[in-house]
Design a protein around this nucleic acid. Structure first.
Lengths: 234, 234
DNA sequence: CGCTCTGTTGACTAGACTCAAGGCTAGTGG
DNA sequence: CCACTAGCCTTGAGTCTAGTCAACAGAGCG
């Protein structure tokens, strides 16, 4: 169970803690790509656990420009942030087809009340998210397009690898999604990606991006995985 | 005590909880402007509570460009994020002269263990921080310079007002700091500020910025305080 | 008095955006 | 089986926002 695996990474859980979590995430649902799981401003009465596929948080400006705030992979809990307040301050949407399990809000709150270890683990999980947000601000605010995209690719690759060590596939992000994640336009992303392919840093086949030379890409992207904490390496 | 006041905003605390917090924050220190309280990559063995003045979180790119991640006012707990991991993933520095109290890490961890209500309140506090981070990503990622600066000014004004309802002073940010917060250059910030003054949206006297017409500035900045949650209004 | 920091201004540059068109693939319906 | 459509990707030309570089003014300070 990927969620238990992820939470255990940040701290120890007792056998009863694990059992309590597992009892919640019973049935799962398959969602199409591009589906909104949570809408900005809407109520959050359940927590969505991502079992497969990619999802994102995003917000939209008054002018309708979308900015992706973070990417999420298998094992991530998607709306802990909104859950505690009961109302979402951002969208959560699938980027690819996704399998998800819904955990009712009341059950989570109950879990927190009764299992201090789980409450602690969930806190650490949200702190890890916050750490990623901070790096994302730096990335979008102060780095040029090449560096910015390189950084994003490095981060995503590591998180995918941590969540699913066997996965050998590339990142299934469209250039428009990449643009929303980096605060650039699809056209510019396209040109940068072409350059990166030219330089043998990445490769592209049929809609997915694979990293050819991680080390050089990390240098270009000024990528230091320290901020990922337990989100890097399994 | 501003810290207790702030934590109470997100949820109820018992009398013993309050007492436990107060017993920690005994003595305080005065710090100059521009001092690093926590350094990126360094150990975090204490939590710093801000009693007066302004502080910021920031990170620096490989090329030495600084990006401010969030501003902090009276009552904020400054390094809860690093505290739980024991190592900081960003700088924390004073922007103005500040009065701070240092709470030892062990004492905080102990507090969390023994007072579930405090642990909960601290979690909510970090969640509120995360919410601000997300809006900040949108701001630097997708908004133009005018909107971006207007948004930042609105947010800062509200947070200051929430922390200290009596305060009538403006924001004591230099244009360079404003530039680091918005991901712009000081030169460009200068020109935008002049335009905003021209349009009677803000005013400047001797290093501080005051908002003349909050409503119009909020429209320009696409500012909706919802994301601030308990950080807005006392 | 000179130094540093902050703010200001002008001239020039460049990185990224906009607009517009066209190609490719997959899916859909006749 | 073939048109038709809708996404996604690609390319080119032109524009513009914001950055760069450089110089200077004023305040505060040792």
């Amino acid at each position: 169970m990927p969620i238990v695996r992820k939470l255990t990474r940040s701290g120890p859980l007792g056998e009863d803690d694990r059992a309590a979590i597992l009892s919640l995430a019973q049935d799962s649902v398959m969602l199409d790509a591009g589906v909104a799981i949570v809408a900005d401003g809407g109520p959050v009465d359940r927590c969505c656990a991502l079992l497969s596929g990619f999802a994102s948080r995003s917000k939209v400006t008054g002018e309708g420009k979308r900015q992706i705030l973070s990417l999420h992979v298998c094992g991530d809990l998607l709306d802990l942030h909104g859950l505690m307040r009961g109302v979402a301050d951002h969208d959560i949407r699938t980027l690819t087809p996704c399998r998800v399990a819904f955990l009712p809000r009341s059950a989570i709150l109950d879990l927190i009340d009764r299992h201090a270890a789980i409450a602690h683990a969930l806190w650490l999980d949200t702190l890890a998210d916050a750490s990623v947000f901070r790096e994302w601000i730096l990335n979008v605010g102060r780095r040029g397009a090449r560096t910015r995209i390189a950084h994003l690719l490095c981060e995503s690759a590591l998180r995918v690898a941590a969540a699913d060590p066997d996965a050998r596939s590339g990142l299934p992000l469209t250039q428009a999604q990449l643009a929303d994640a980096t605060g650039l336009t699809p056209v510019h992303v396209n040109r940068v990606l072409q350059a990166l392919v030219q330089e043998r840093l990445i490769d592209r086949d049929d809609g997915t991006i694979t990293i050819v030379d991680f080390d050089r890409l990390a240098i270009l992207g000024e990528f230091d995985p320290a901020y990922l904490g337990s989100l890097a390496h399994g």
